[in-house]
Write a protein that binds this DNA or RNA. Structure first.
Lengths: 348, 348
DNA sequence: CTGAAAGCGCTTACAG
DNA sequence: CTGAAAGCGCTTACAG
């Protein structure tokens, strides 16, 4: 029971071998006799030896950590339940691998970029996750410049030199629009996300495509930054327009819930007077009234797959891109046929 | 423009001094002539030298990182907007200090404890944040055993050897009860959080105390795990009881929003038939209908202060405990006088 | 005020 | 299959 933590030298002398051999045994390198290896490992276990992370880091230039940089405005960060679940998924694979997750939350692009630079310069992480991809994403060039292994969430707008894990959300949006059209809606609005963000832009395009396919006007769209306050505001503007929609497709659940609030405040019944769909399938969406028809994905699984892909990319330098099962439309109680024209007018 | 990153030796030889002196200059140690120091620093900057983190870690036994372990069931993790904001607060101080945050999300106590052990054994972090304090918290003994610097969020149930940052939430709960009592409510229920968690238990006690002070029955309490599903369930049970409350105080906003959903589903008007209060002051609470009367705290500030305190604790070993401004009652539209007895009966 | 050297605890060619 | 040694890039007594 020495006070000091045992080192590789302690193990080596206790096992009667050199430090080098202990290292080889530990790392499963070839060239160690089986019984020698077993003896070394037994002694190591006996002594309670754990190789020093910083010593390994120094000689291998590896940090055994992965980095996640989240760039979100303070206003948006709290409302989005994506990240906690996504991180739980990452953790579930990292913990088995003895790796850690280094997390940064930054307010703007400048801080984001400099955070990646610092992470790379300090070799604080062996690779990074790229979330919230943007249309013209400055990170791509930076990642290449820094020669930092990376994995992106979603399909990058340009061709990139790293793998990504994508989840098709277009079919979910299309299913939502088709669902509303089949219920008889013809004036459907969309409260879109941030157009500078790939998934914000793509959901909007999917909406427009689906509307066009149905032969309907696809111009009832208002862009937001994904925040609840802008979601509420967009809903108001849509309802105040000359031809208010009878259904609104929201780009995320928090905005849809805010939209529900606006509708109720105006005395509109959902879904009798106004149908609403969300996006994410958050827990709370099942418990608001009426329960939200939404489009579900699996952020925990996304985290798991992204972590495995990044680890693979670090190890091999050429991990394959993977496509997750597409987001699914989950029909609950916030969608119904539109009101008959007369009843409709009565509400304005 | 060499391909290799410059090291301390490069700086030393370029400046014509020894490595040791460069180290002293870098770390502001005494015993370096001012002009020598300036020259060294100028050369270092010129060469773009950044001291290697892993080399420094190895010789100083410091990781320049702080650890946050979040133990939450998958079901609860997404709905609680506390952590993203709290983490943003931590980040705002760590980024200036060149330190990183290592985050772990674990499902249960066993994983939680072993995560702290691993973090300490690997010297992965220099100190840890302790959140979601429990009544009988196994982490306290572990922290002492591991000799790991720590800071707790909230007031520990037992006396501990590390500082904590507390935020009084009792006065907020009391203010909520007093507000409801002053509106004329006499049957007030409480959807409590997890009683094993300090803040869950304390909010519940504050509720009971406030009710007793008002001379009212304080037994209308249902415990939950803070999840929206249990929040909805508890609301139903309260409303199905023999003497249903005319107001419900919820231990967090997500559950209050679920409670709002249950009330609407039953055709109860809020606040005319039922008053509801939340806790947290989340963004979305302002946008549901009716806007939620809630109790607000400042998780970002909490993160900032906790980070500074932990850094102080690491540096001095004796950082003072700090008390944040108490949570404030924010009156919005979900609270009003109770319905007259007759009207009430009509709703059952 | 400054230099030369040992040490932190691993890994990895290089010999044998 | 195994050992002895150098090296990763810092920090820190120890001399002078």
């Amino acid at each position: 029971m020495s006070a000091r933590k045992p080192t590789i030298s302690d193990v080596a002398s206790a096992a009667g071998v050199s430090k080098g051999l202990v290292s080889f045994a530990l790392n499963d390198k070839p060239g160690v006799a089986v019984d020698t290896r077993d003896r070394i490992l037994a002694v190591a276990k006996d002594l309670g030896w754990r190789p020093s992370l910083s010593a390994r880091s120094l000689s291998t230039r590896t940090s055994f950590a992965l980095g996640l940089v989240i760039r979100r405005a303070a206003e948006v960060i709290g409302a989005d339940p994506f990240f906690p679940s996504f991180i739980a998924g990452i953790e579930s694979v990292l913990s088995e691998e003895g790796r850690a997750l280094v997390l940064s939350v930054v307010p703007d692009q400048e801080a984001e970029l400099s955070t990646y630079r610092t992470l790379a310069a300090d070799k604080r992480v062996d690779g990074v996750f790229l979330t919230d991809l943007r249309q013209d994403d400055k990170r791509f060039a930076l990642i290449e410049e820094l020669d930092l292994p990376a994995v992106a969430l979603g399909h990058p707008a340009s061709s990139v030199c790293f793998p990504f894990v994508e989840l098709d959300d277009t079919s979910g949006i299309q299913a939502a629009v088709e669902h509303l059209v089949s219920l008889g809606h013809t004036r459907i609005g969309h409260v879109a996300g941030d157009p500078a963000m790939i998934h914000g832009g793509r959901r909007r395009e999917s909406f427009a495509d689906a509307m066009t396919n149905a032969g309907l006007d696809s111009s009832l769209v208002i862009e937001t930054n994904f925040s609840v306050s802008q979601g509420a505001d967009a809903t108001r503007r849509l309802l105040d327009g000359p031809h208010p929609p009878t259904a609104i497709v929201f780009a995320n659940d928090p905005m849809a819930i805010a939209g529900l609030g606006v509708a109720h405040q105006r005395g509109l019944r959902v879904p009798a007077d106004l149908s609403i769909t969300g996006f994410d399938g958050t827990d709370i969406s099942a418990y608001v009234f009426p329960a939200l028809t939404t489009i579900t994905s699996d952020p925990v699984e996304w985290g798991r797959v992204a972590a495995r892909t990044l680890l693979d990319q670090i190890a091999t330098g050429a991990a394959p891109t993977v496509a997750l099962p597409p987001a699914q439309l989950l029909i609950r109680d916030s969608t119904a046929p539109p009101p008959p024209p007369a009843a409709e007018v009565a509400h304005r």
